[in-house]
């Protein structure tokens, strides 16, 4: 009702009518975002649980298959994601203190870093494809059991590692692709000057999402790449 006294009395167009003030609206949306992230934790949690059980059962194959991953690219990608988390934090801060130009710069940097992560991931997947490490009829893993030279690993068990590897990094990459989409949207509206110190909830909540995806990778990296690197 545009002519109701309540609607007229509202000083801010961003404040929805069912909230008392901006602080309450912000807290409510933040709580909602955290509830969504709680469901995301359980979503990835199921895959982590499957990973842990199979790693317990087939440790020698998991160790051998893990050693075939490119540890340099994995470490670089971890650093890239950590840098993107910093640029997200600085973009949110720029909105909090009302600096439009800084917001645009940091959001653009976040996009560049997010795409760099996906590019490096694509390079890694391509080499796995060429090595026939993709689970399926043409799967072949030539590794040997660590500490037992000459003893070939069980192909089925190695295939389970790579199935989990592609499921987990694939789901993570899907989240990154969605994140890049969200941040392109944010970049456009930040450039238009929509996010102010009073109202920047989309930026804040998308930041929470981006950091969550970063945390998933923080666990994926040691669990997938660093199982048994010791000499």
């Amino acid at each position: 009702m545009p002519d109701s006294p309540i609607a007229v009395a509202h000083p801010r167009p961003e404040l929805k009518h069912h909230f008392a003030d901006m602080a309450q609206q912000r807290e409510a949306s933040s709580l909602g975002m955290w509830l969504f992230l709680a469901t995301e934790i359980m979503f990835f949690g199921g895959m982590f649980c499957a990973y842990l059980i199979y790693r317990l059962w087939y440790f020698p194959e998991f160790a051998a298959a893990s050693n075939s991953l490119d540890i340099t690219l994995g470490t670089v990608n971890t650093a890239v994601l950590i840098c993107s988390s910093l640029t997200v934090v600085l973009a949110v801060r720029a909105a909090q203190i009302g600096r439009r130009q800084a917001q645009v710069i940091y959001l653009a940097l976040t996009l560049v870093l997010g795409l760099a992560f996906l590019g490096i991931k694509a390079v890694e997947w391509t080499s796995k494809f060429k090595e026939h490490h993709i689970p399926g009829p043409t799967f072949h893993f030539e590794g040997t059991v660590p500490n037992h030279p000459g003893q070939p690993v069980d192909q089925q068990h190695a295939q389970i590692f790579f199935s989990l590897y592609f499921a987990m990094t694939g789901m993570h990459a899907l989240h990154m692709i969605i994140g890049v989409g969200i941040f392109s949207y944010l970049l456009y509206y930040a450039w238009k000057g929509r996010y102010t110190p009073e109202y920047h909830t989309p930026l804040e909540n998308s930041g929470l999402y981006w950091h969550f995806v970063d945390i998933v990778w923080i666990y994926l990296f040691p669990l997938l790449y660093l199982i048994d690197r010791k000499k």
Binding site: I71, T75, T78, A79, I82, F221, P222, L226, R229, K230, K231
Partner: peptide
């Protein structure tokens, strides 16, 4: 990140 990669070896 650097520490965790180095310690793994």
């Amino acid at each position: 990140t650097g520490v965790t990669t180095s310690i793994a070896f």
